[in-house]
Computed example of a mutant assay.
Amino acid sequence: MSPRSGKTVVTGGCGFIGAHLCAHLMQRGEDVVVVDDLSVGSRGNLEALGLGAVDVQTVDIRDVESLTRLLRKSRPEEVIHLAAVHFIPLCESDPLNAIRTNVEGTQALLQACTAAGSIHSVVLASSGAVYRPDTTAHRETDALGPTDTYGHTKQWAEQLAGLFHSRTGIAVGIARLFNTFGPGETNPHFIPSVILQLMQGNTIRVGTLSTRRDYVYVSDVVAAIAQLGDVCRERGLLTCNVGREEAVEGSRIVELIGRALGRDVKVVVDRQRVRADDRPVLASDCRLAHLELDWHAQTGLAEGLEAALERPLGAGVALA
């Protein structure tokens, strides 16, 4: 399937996944407009990928009127919605802000898309956190049952997107992303935290290393998101998991990073870093993405971690 020739708006385009997505879309020859309030993201993340000239519009994702004006002026064919509060500790410490951004912000954007008159498709970045905990890999038909604020906000956003599709007929793609990693993360997640600690010495402080997560490299994620935007126009409403289909313990991540940096790692358990609702396993079954999107994760775990070493955190981000 050939890429679109029209314009694409990317919300949260100055963030981690957003900046990489903009690079991917522009490499396909697409015209991109970024919407970002720069509260977490930074133009520096685009500049780090050679995208300093991208059109960045500083707009609050909850501002329906400003979003509507922007979409009517730019006339995009597609909107890819990444803007959200992603870091789970922030969602738990300020759940009201997470709900306002992730849920109210999604509804505001969908209302603006309805009013714009040019939109053919909307892609929503959701999460594997929407699923009910299980020790086996999740398929898209599995029961939903989030265990934390972030997961609930993503489930609600999915429901709003489904309602938007049924009322407007505009195509919707929902990408349930698993643990995305790579250069330039804009939140101090587990992998950049371990990298930066080991760059400073042999000792790391962690909450737990026994949980298993499905780590998928950012270039694979943005390829899936872009392809979902193409395919959902034919399907109407399509939800796909995006993962590497391998649940890896935190101890394995530490081992690989330590080996890459030549460190004799000493682990110190910090109980303050343990999350109360941390599920033991979160893994994806991506057979639907293989079938519908002709997409497979291409980057191995060790290869992706090597790349992440070059720039663990994005512009202006500090290690928590």
Rank of each mutant, 00 (worst) to 15 (best):
I99R: 04
I257R: 06
V40R: 09
P188N: 01
A307K: 14
R273C: 03
N202P: 07
R263Q: 15
T180L: 00
T168P: 11
H189L: 11
G15Q: 01
P95K: 06
H296E: 12
S118I: 10
D264T: 12
S166V: 00
A53W: 12
A307N: 09
Q197Y: 05
S166W: 00
G316A: 09
I204C: 08
V59P: 00
L301D: 04
A318W: 03
N202C: 09
A320W: 00
I61G: 01
R43D: 10
V59I: 15
V59L: 15
I225E: 01
S126V: 10
E77I: 06
A125I: 03
Q227N: 14
L90M: 11
R4D: 10
L144W: 09
T186P: 04
L256W: 14
L38H: 09
V123A: 03
T203V: 15
R62I: 00
T114P: 02
V281N: 07
L67D: 05
R43L: 14
Q227G: 13
D37I: 06
M26N: 10
R287H: 13
P89L: 08
A315M: 12
G300P: 03
L177R: 05
L309D: 00
D142F: 00
R28G: 07
E246M: 14
G258E: 05
R273W: 01
E246F: 08
M26D: 08
E30V: 10
P188L: 07
R233L: 14
P89T: 04
V9C: 13
D278E: 13
E47M: 15
D94R: 15
V123M: 06
T106Q: 04
L256D: 09
H152G: 06
L293S: 06
K7L: 10
Q57H: 12
V122F: 07
P146T: 07
T147G: 13
S118P: 12
D31H: 10
F190I: 05
T135I: 11
L46C: 09
V254L: 04
V35S: 07
R132Q: 14
Q272Y: 01
L177A: 05
H290K: 15
N179V: 07
F87I: 03
F190D: 00
T106R: 01
L96F: 09
D264M: 08
I80E: 01
L198F: 05
I253R: 02
F164Y: 07
L305M: 05
